[in-house]
Structure formats: structure tokens, C-alpha cells
Computed example of a mutant assay.
Amino acid sequence: MTLQLDTTIAAYFAAANAGRHEQLALCFEADAEVRDEGSTRQGRAAIAAWAGEAHRRYAAVSTPRAVAGSGADLIVTADVAGNFPGSPLPLHFHFRLGETGIAALSIKP
């Protein structure tokens, strides 16, 4: 069975896994925010920088396994493998979709 993801969320994971940070940032609305590892980044430039740094540090690849929620609020559970202790780990990507892209993303264990 193939997991059906919103096209913007699928594009986010594809760009993240390929290390395409600028393309990843374009999946977000201009004033979107990302919360990860206790920090918040706002705006596409900050999101691209966060994605680039995370890719350099962890070389992580995310494999979405499940999606829950409805409408604009979706939680994608993904197995994330990379250069970090305990790899791979299941992480929960809490997406809030806006009119033109991802409005907010929070990544939690």
C-alpha cells in the first residue's frame, strides 16, 4: 500500500531527502515557521538555512510511514535515519497547511 501525502508535503520530503534546501524552503509560505530541536525559524531564508545545517549535521533521510489528521492539520510519522544516536528513529512531523504552502511545521519525537 502506498502512502498518500498532500503534494506539498510530498515535495517537502523529496527536497529534504535530496538535500535541496532552497527547493525545500519553497514548499513553505513566505512567513512560515519551523520548530525543531528547541528552536524556531521563521521565513523561507531561515528555513533554508535550518534545512542546510540539519542536512550537513545529520545527513538524514526520512521515510514517511503514516499520516493522521484532516484538513490543514496533518501529522506525518516518518522513520528518520542519519548520523545521530539511535538512528533510525520515528519522528512526528506536525504540518499546518496554508493557502500557498506549509504555514507551520513542528518536528517531535
Score class of each variant (00 low, 15 high):
Ile9Tyr: 00
Phe13Gly: 09
Phe13Met: 12
Ala14Thr: 13
Ala15Lys: 08
Asn17Pro: 05
Asn17Asp: 14
Ala18Phe: 07
Ala18Arg: 09
Ala18Gly: 11
Gly19Pro: 07
Gly19Phe: 04
Arg20Glu: 15
His21Gln: 07
Glu22Ser: 07
Glu22Ala: 15
Gln23Phe: 03
Leu24Asp: 05
Leu24Met: 08
Leu26His: 14
Cys27Val: 00
Ala30Asn: 10
Ala30Asp: 14
Ala30Lys: 11
Ala32Gln: 01
Glu37Gly: 00
Gly38Met: 00
Ser39Tyr: 02
Ser39Ala: 12
Arg41Phe: 13
Gln42Leu: 10
Arg44Cys: 04
Ile47Trp: 04
Trp50Asn: 09
Ala51Arg: 03
Glu53Lys: 12
His55Thr: 11
His55Leu: 05
Arg57Tyr: 06
Arg57Gly: 01
Val61Trp: 09
Ser62Pro: 04
Arg65Met: 08
Gly69His: 04
Ser70Asn: 15
Ala72Tyr: 09
Val76Met: 03
Thr77Ser: 09
Asp79Cys: 07
Ala81Pro: 07
Gly82Lys: 01
Gly82Pro: 00
Gly82His: 01
Asn83Gly: 08
Phe84Ala: 08
Pro88Trp: 06
Leu91His: 01
Leu91Pro: 00
Leu91Val: 00
His92Gln: 07
Phe93Pro: 00
His94Met: 04
Leu97Cys: 12
Leu97Ala: 10
Gly101Lys: 06
Ile102Glu: 00
